[in-house]
């Protein structure tokens, strides 16, 4: 296997803390926040993260496949989550310490509950609004009611972090230009 070439493309409005582990070809979109101690690891193919995502402490995002791992907008990766999905839509929540295998593709508005393990042997795609919850990773469909409010909350959350994180952390490449 060829050595991994590092190539980071970070949008000027993204907030990526200095103390994160980035490896491989990574693109981070506008307004996305990467907390310190998070890991983004493009082992094989590149990772492209959209805008407005929040990647919390000790979250791990890995791309084991050759093709590009595309992560949409406004996703939340909570503390200690480990995500290897080859593609992720928008407005998904990956709760604390959940784990999603590289066999699962995620659509949009999905929730993987705290501590849930999603490791199917065969490839599958989580449809929009799928909720995984509980110790046995049970599934159900969310009606989607309240999604506008949740999206609003997600944006406010990101807005707050964009303001506060740079006050206490050094940022990668010092690129987070603030008007």
């Amino acid at each position: 296997m060829a050595p991994i070439r590092d190539k980071f493309t970070i949008h000027s409005k993204a907030v990526v803390c200095q103390d994160v582990e980035l490896k491989g070809d990574i693109t981070i979109g506008s307004g996305t926040i990467v907390h310190p101690k998070a890991t983004i690891f493009a082992v094989a193919g590149p990772i492209v993260i959209g805008s407005g995502c929040i990647i919390e402490e000790s979250a791990i995002i890995v791309n084991r496949r050759k093709e590009v791992m595309r992560i949409g907008d406004d996703n939340l990766f909570e503390i200690g989550s480990r995500i290897e999905s080859p593609s992720i839509g928008s407005f998904n929540t990956f709760s604390t310490r959940c784990r999603v295998h590289h066999t699962v593709r995620i659509s949009s508005f999905c929730v993987v509950g705290a501590g849930c393990l999603l490791v199917p042997a065969e490839d599958e795609t989580l449809e929009d609004y799928t909720v995984i919850y509980g110790a046995n990773a049970e599934r159900r469909k969310w009606s989607g009611r309240g999604k506008a409010q949740e999206a609003d909350l997600r944006r406010k959350h990101a807005e707050y972090l964009r303001e506060m994180l740079p006050k206490f952390n050094r940022l990668r490449r010092g690129e987070a230009s603030r008007e």
Binding site: E138, R140, R145, G146, A148, Q149, D152
Partner: peptide, 19 residues
């Protein structure tokens, strides 16, 4: 989003998202 909240109100489960 208004702070008062729009009716109708409903009960919502933050764990499994039943409403």
């Amino acid at each position: 989003i208004s702070t008062v909240g729009e009716p109708p109100f409903f009960l919502y489960c933050s764990h499994c998202r039943w409403d």
